[in-house]
Amino acid sequence: MGRIRAWRPVSRLLSESAAGREQPAIAEAGSLASRSALLQANTLAVEIRNAAARRGNRLIWSGVSAEIRRGEFLAVLGPNGVGKSTLVKVILGLLPLASGEVRVLGQPPGRANRDIGYLPQRRSFDPGLRVRGVDIVRLGLDGHRWGIPLPGLNRLTERGREEDARVLDAIQLVDAEEFATRPIGEVSGGEQQRLLIAQALIRNPSLLVLDEPLDSLDLPNQAASAALLNRICEERGVTVLMVAHNVNPILSYLDRVIYLARGGSVSGTPEEVITAETLTRLYGTPIEVFRTADGHLVVVGQPEPPHGDVHAHLVS
């Protein structure tokens, strides 16, 4: 991080970076491992064995098994209410399993959370919230620390300068320099999303877990966010696990999908899993999969609303 002159406040560095006067800082810490090396190493980021989850007395799903390799871009798919967010909570250790086993980054769930970046289901910030984007990003770094922060002293210590550099790096990674110093309530939904991704990435996690990150965005922003996540996955070697309602914006980037159903799951490459036979078997009801001329997938006949939201009227 030699390039960063970090004794200046982050906001100043940001505005300079946005104006193109300063070379973008590239943190060496981020390029820990290239994605291809990670994929070749074939180690598991998440391992789920015959798991079942309950909320209260209700069985959400059971018989779910899946393996997620490090460096993969993966989507958890399935109709509404099938328990996709529950799976995320289980992986984060926020909800204990009813039976079965889950290991996350080689540890029981919850232990490795410092190494996981998490974006909950959104949640857009109140328009009146007058906290800057850069402050939100920094909370991802030090928000769990007790004690009084002394903003002026931060720049005098080695650790403080390194933290400033990390904040700047995360914001540059998601191209948020232009609006990071504005109150977060005043920027658009897509811009908020990018700042939140920066917040999740600031500790250089090995695993990024996102719950329906594209849901509240318009189509161009969906495409941009998907491309950004793919770039992060490739450049930083971060494993991306994403709950999605609509597979199409991310289809071209996906290494693997997990389809979730009440009685189990199937996982594999999108070509293997998103087929009429596999989904019909999983849900026990006739399901058809169409591929449109531009390569989009339309799944028709799911028990609940289909994930091809544009084509919802096709359901018979």
Partner: peptide
């Protein structure tokens, strides 16, 4: 408040993420 200042700020603006991070 001085002691809990940052976690409280985190929990106030972003409770879900804060909870996942152990706040």
């Amino acid at each position: 408040v001085g002691f809990i200042w940052r976690p409280l700020l985190f929990a106030s603006v972003d409770p879900d993420v804060a909870a996942a991070r152990g706040v």
